[in-house]
Each structure stands twice: as C-alpha cells, then as structure tokens.
Amino acid sequence: EIHIRTNGEEQARKVYKMLAKRNYDVKIEQHNGQWVVTAS
C-alpha cells in the first residue's frame, strides 16, 4: 500500500488520476487538513 501526502486538493487529484490509470485502487483522505492519497 502506498501513502502519498500532498499539499492540496489539486495535487491530490493529479496523483489520484495518475495512480488510477495504473489500475491501483485509490482513495483520497484528509488527515489534519492534509490530503493523503492511498493506493493499493
């Protein structure tokens, strides 16, 4: 499982799309105001 911390919604969405293209199961979560993308 991969966790990627991003500094904002826009970046989180870019990372989300990139990983989704590679057939990862991707989730975006917010932790303490930080956007974290989780891929498995």
Results as ranks from 00 to 15, higher is better:
residue 1 E to P: 11
residue 1 E to V: 15
residue 1 E to H: 14
residue 1 E to Y: 15
residue 1 E to F: 15
residue 1 E to Q: 13
residue 1 E to K: 14
residue 1 E to D: 09
residue 2 I to V: 06
residue 2 I to G: 02
residue 2 I to T: 04
residue 2 I to N: 02
residue 2 I to E: 03
residue 2 I to S: 02
residue 2 I to D: 02
residue 2 I to P: 03
residue 2 I to A: 03
residue 2 I to F: 13
residue 3 H to D: 04
residue 3 H to P: 02
residue 3 H to T: 15
residue 3 H to S: 12
residue 3 H to V: 15
residue 3 H to A: 08
residue 3 H to W: 13
residue 3 H to I: 15
residue 3 H to K: 14
residue 4 I to H: 03
residue 4 I to T: 02
residue 4 I to S: 01
residue 4 I to R: 01
residue 4 I to Q: 02
residue 4 I to Y: 13
residue 4 I to L: 05
residue 4 I to G: 01
residue 4 I to F: 13
residue 4 I to D: 02
residue 4 I to M: 04
residue 5 R to I: 15
residue 5 R to G: 04
residue 5 R to E: 07
residue 5 R to P: 06
residue 5 R to H: 11
residue 5 R to K: 10
residue 5 R to D: 04
residue 5 R to Q: 08
residue 5 R to M: 12
residue 5 R to S: 07
residue 5 R to N: 06
residue 6 T to P: 03
residue 6 T to V: 15
residue 6 T to Q: 03
residue 6 T to N: 03
residue 6 T to G: 03
residue 6 T to R: 04
residue 6 T to I: 12
residue 6 T to W: 03
residue 6 T to E: 02
residue 6 T to K: 04
residue 6 T to H: 04
residue 6 T to S: 05
residue 6 T to Y: 10
residue 7 N to V: 08
residue 7 N to T: 10
residue 7 N to Q: 10
residue 7 N to R: 11
residue 7 N to D: 11
residue 7 N to A: 09
residue 8 G to R: 13
residue 8 G to A: 10
residue 8 G to D: 15
residue 8 G to V: 13
residue 8 G to F: 14
residue 8 G to M: 10
residue 8 G to L: 12
residue 8 G to P: 02
residue 9 E to A: 06
residue 9 E to K: 08
residue 9 E to T: 04
residue 9 E to S: 05
residue 9 E to Q: 06
residue 9 E to Y: 15
residue 9 E to D: 03
residue 10 E to D: 09
residue 10 E to T: 09
residue 10 E to A: 13
residue 10 E to M: 10
residue 10 E to F: 08
residue 10 E to V: 10
residue 10 E to G: 09
residue 10 E to S: 10
residue 10 E to N: 08
residue 11 Q to D: 09
residue 11 Q to M: 10
residue 11 Q to K: 06
residue 11 Q to N: 05
residue 11 Q to P: 03
residue 11 Q to G: 05
residue 12 A to H: 00
residue 12 A to Y: 01
residue 12 A to K: 01
residue 12 A to I: 02
residue 12 A to R: 01
residue 12 A to G: 02
residue 13 R to W: 14
residue 13 R to K: 09
residue 13 R to E: 05
residue 13 R to H: 07
residue 13 R to M: 11
residue 13 R to P: 00
residue 13 R to V: 07
residue 13 R to L: 12
residue 14 K to T: 06
residue 14 K to P: 01
residue 14 K to I: 11
residue 14 K to F: 09
residue 14 K to V: 07
residue 14 K to S: 06
residue 14 K to Q: 10
residue 14 K to N: 06
residue 15 V to H: 03
residue 15 V to P: 00
residue 15 V to D: 01
residue 15 V to R: 02
residue 15 V to M: 07
residue 15 V to N: 01
residue 15 V to G: 01
residue 15 V to E: 02
residue 15 V to K: 03
residue 16 Y to T: 03
residue 16 Y to A: 15
residue 16 Y to W: 06
residue 16 Y to R: 05
residue 16 Y to D: 02
residue 16 Y to M: 13
residue 16 Y to N: 02
residue 16 Y to E: 05
residue 16 Y to G: 12
residue 17 K to F: 09
residue 17 K to T: 11
residue 17 K to E: 15
residue 17 K to S: 10
residue 17 K to N: 14
residue 17 K to V: 11
residue 17 K to L: 13
residue 17 K to P: 01
residue 17 K to H: 12
residue 17 K to R: 11
residue 17 K to M: 12
residue 18 M to G: 04
residue 18 M to D: 09
residue 18 M to F: 13
residue 18 M to H: 10
residue 18 M to S: 07
residue 18 M to L: 11
residue 19 L to M: 05
residue 19 L to Y: 06
residue 19 L to N: 00
residue 19 L to G: 01
residue 19 L to Q: 01
residue 19 L to W: 04
residue 19 L to E: 01
residue 19 L to F: 08
residue 19 L to P: 01
residue 19 L to S: 01
residue 19 L to A: 01
residue 19 L to H: 01
residue 19 L to I: 03
residue 19 L to R: 00
residue 20 A to R: 11
residue 20 A to E: 10
residue 20 A to P: 01
residue 20 A to T: 10
residue 20 A to K: 14
residue 20 A to I: 13
residue 21 K to C: 13
residue 21 K to G: 11
residue 21 K to H: 09
residue 21 K to I: 09
residue 21 K to M: 12
residue 21 K to N: 11
residue 21 K to A: 15
residue 21 K to V: 08
residue 21 K to F: 08
residue 22 R to H: 13
residue 22 R to Y: 14
residue 22 R to F: 14
residue 22 R to N: 09
residue 22 R to G: 06
residue 22 R to Q: 12
residue 23 N to P: 03
residue 23 N to T: 04
residue 23 N to Q: 08
residue 23 N to A: 08
residue 23 N to W: 14
residue 24 Y to P: 04
residue 24 Y to S: 04
residue 24 Y to W: 10
residue 24 Y to F: 11
residue 24 Y to G: 03
residue 24 Y to I: 06
residue 24 Y to N: 04
residue 24 Y to V: 05
residue 24 Y to L: 08
residue 24 Y to A: 05
residue 24 Y to R: 05
residue 24 Y to D: 03
residue 25 D to R: 12
residue 25 D to G: 05
residue 25 D to F: 12
residue 25 D to S: 11
residue 25 D to H: 12
residue 25 D to A: 11
residue 25 D to W: 10
residue 25 D to Y: 12
residue 25 D to Q: 14
residue 25 D to P: 05
residue 25 D to M: 12
residue 25 D to T: 13
residue 26 V to S: 02
residue 26 V to Q: 00
residue 26 V to K: 01
residue 26 V to T: 03
residue 26 V to N: 00
residue 26 V to G: 02
residue 26 V to P: 05
residue 26 V to Y: 01
residue 26 V to I: 04
residue 26 V to F: 01
residue 26 V to H: 00
residue 27 K to A: 06
residue 27 K to I: 06
residue 27 K to W: 08
residue 27 K to D: 03
residue 27 K to Q: 06
residue 27 K to V: 06
residue 27 K to R: 11
residue 27 K to L: 05
residue 27 K to E: 04
residue 27 K to P: 00
residue 28 I to Y: 04
residue 28 I to K: 01
residue 28 I to W: 02
residue 28 I to R: 01
residue 28 I to C: 04
residue 28 I to P: 00
residue 28 I to T: 02
residue 28 I to M: 08
residue 28 I to S: 01
residue 28 I to G: 00
residue 28 I to N: 00
residue 29 E to K: 08
residue 29 E to T: 12
residue 29 E to M: 11
residue 29 E to S: 11
residue 29 E to F: 15
residue 29 E to Y: 15
residue 29 E to P: 00
residue 29 E to L: 09
residue 29 E to I: 11
residue 29 E to Q: 10
residue 29 E to W: 14
residue 30 Q to F: 14
residue 30 Q to I: 13
residue 30 Q to D: 05
residue 30 Q to G: 04
residue 30 Q to T: 07
residue 30 Q to M: 11
residue 30 Q to K: 10
residue 30 Q to A: 06
residue 30 Q to R: 09
residue 30 Q to Y: 14
residue 30 Q to P: 03
residue 30 Q to V: 13
residue 31 H to R: 10
residue 31 H to E: 10
residue 31 H to I: 14
residue 31 H to L: 13
residue 31 H to M: 11
residue 31 H to Q: 11
residue 31 H to D: 10
residue 31 H to Y: 11
residue 31 H to S: 09
residue 31 H to T: 09
residue 31 H to C: 14
residue 32 N to K: 08
residue 32 N to Q: 09
residue 32 N to D: 12
residue 32 N to V: 04
residue 32 N to M: 07
residue 32 N to L: 07
residue 32 N to T: 04
residue 33 G to R: 03
residue 33 G to W: 03
residue 33 G to Q: 05
residue 33 G to V: 02
residue 33 G to S: 05
residue 33 G to L: 04
residue 33 G to P: 00
residue 33 G to E: 06
residue 33 G to F: 04
residue 33 G to T: 04
residue 34 Q to V: 13
residue 34 Q to F: 15
residue 34 Q to E: 11
residue 34 Q to R: 07
residue 34 Q to C: 11
residue 34 Q to A: 08
residue 34 Q to D: 08
residue 34 Q to I: 14
residue 34 Q to H: 13
residue 34 Q to Y: 15
residue 34 Q to T: 10
residue 34 Q to S: 07
residue 35 W to L: 01
residue 35 W to Q: 00
residue 35 W to F: 05
residue 35 W to A: 01
residue 35 W to G: 00
residue 35 W to S: 00
residue 35 W to P: 00
residue 36 V to K: 03
residue 36 V to E: 05
residue 36 V to H: 09
residue 36 V to I: 13
residue 36 V to R: 05
residue 37 V to Y: 00
residue 37 V to W: 01
residue 37 V to M: 01
residue 37 V to N: 00
residue 37 V to T: 00
residue 37 V to P: 00
residue 37 V to Q: 00
residue 37 V to K: 00
residue 38 T to V: 13
residue 38 T to A: 04
residue 38 T to I: 15
residue 38 T to M: 07
residue 38 T to L: 08
residue 38 T to P: 00
residue 38 T to F: 07
residue 38 T to Y: 08
residue 38 T to D: 02
residue 39 A to P: 02
residue 39 A to D: 02
residue 39 A to V: 14
residue 39 A to N: 04
residue 39 A to I: 15
residue 39 A to R: 03
residue 39 A to W: 12
residue 39 A to H: 05
residue 39 A to Q: 03
residue 39 A to L: 13
residue 39 A to T: 06
residue 39 A to K: 03
residue 39 A to M: 10
residue 39 A to E: 02
residue 40 S to H: 10
residue 40 S to E: 05
residue 40 S to Y: 11
residue 40 S to G: 06
residue 40 S to R: 12
residue 40 S to K: 12
residue 40 S to F: 12
residue 40 S to Q: 06
